[in-house]
């Protein structure tokens, strides 16, 4: 009996030890002064900010480096204009296409499918329905319209401007047009010749980043800068993180 008693005591001890181990709390630290940052961490909660929310929108009117205004409005007319006028500033090279393919796989393929036929995994599992194929005759997508829709979203598709950069979107644009071409069984578009003496990376950026001080000339006064009215609003709901 005595041994049974000690055994049960041991068992109880082990049980308390196990139940004291709590997954939902962070562990103790030796020297929290060394571990916890003094500066504000991304997504932190600090009294100095409105709502205590460190994740904030940029001040209104601020322009990130390398950003170029998008001059078409989020309207039916803007869409038509972009569809007709806008073309891809990036050269159509093998490298750009490969990067575009990677980005497409991350952001688009889940709905639009690897082939662009509108049969992504979410469609196959009937989570999201009605994804058109890229060769849809009624839509007849162009480089410009694809970019416009990625930027603002259209109907059930949301804007992807917050997840991709200007460069990313144009890279995806190339790949989408390639998929459309493949679906229509058109001729393969020949790759652009890029002068190998120039650094390819720099050249692509040059197309997208306005020269210093040149920006004012490029944006006509009467065209309001419409970038991300939607994007910005939505980022207002930026989530917050605490330690």
């Amino acid at each position: 009996m005595k041994s049974l008693f000690t055994k049960s005591l041991l068992f109880l001890l082990a049980l308390t030890a196990v139940s004291c181990f709590d997954d939902s709390r962070p562990n103790y630290q030796y020297m929290p002064d060394m571990y916890e940052p003094i500066p504000y961490e991304a997504y932190g909660e600090y009294d100095v900010f409105v709502n205590g929310q460190e994740a904030k929108l940029p001040a209104e009117g601020s322009v990130p480096r390398g950003w170029k205004p998008y001059e078409y409005e989020n309207t039916q007319e803007g869409y038509q204009a972009a569809k007709e006028e806008l073309t891809n500033p990036l050269p159509y090279t093998e490298e750009n296409l490969a990067t575009g393919r990677q980005l497409y796989t991350i952001y688009c393929a889940v709905c639009h499918g690897d082939e662009g036929d509108g049969q992504g995994i979410l469609v196959q599992r009937e989570k999201i329905l009605g994804i058109p194929s890229y060769d849809d005759a009624g839509r007849d997508i162009t480089e410009g319209s694809v970019y416009h829709v990625m930027y603002y979203g259209l109907n059930a598709m949301g804007s992807y401007a917050s997840q991709t950069s200007i460069n990313d979107r144009w890279l995806i644009d190339h790949y989408v047009m390639k998929l459309k071409n493949d679906l229509q069984e058109g001729e393969e578009r020949a790759f652009d010749e890029v002068d190998p003496s120039e650094d390819a990376g720099n050249q692509t950026m040059e197309n997208l980043v306005p020269a210093v001080n040149a920006e004012g000339d490029q944006v006509p006064e009467d065209q309001p800068v419409t970038r991300g009215s939607q994007e910005n609003q939505n980022q207002g709901q930026q989530d917050q993180n605490e330690n």
Partner: peptide, 30 residues
């Protein structure tokens, strides 16, 4: 189950120090 890419939501992992927590507009896209 739905095979959404990690970087679909945590897109800043490609370009930044942080692998950002997606803002809710990303959730709302779907």
């Amino acid at each position: 189950d739905n095979q959404v890419e990690c970087k679909f939501c945590h897109s800043s992992a490609r370009v930044s120090k942080h692998s950002g927590i997606p803002s809710l507009n990303v959730c709302m896209n779907c």
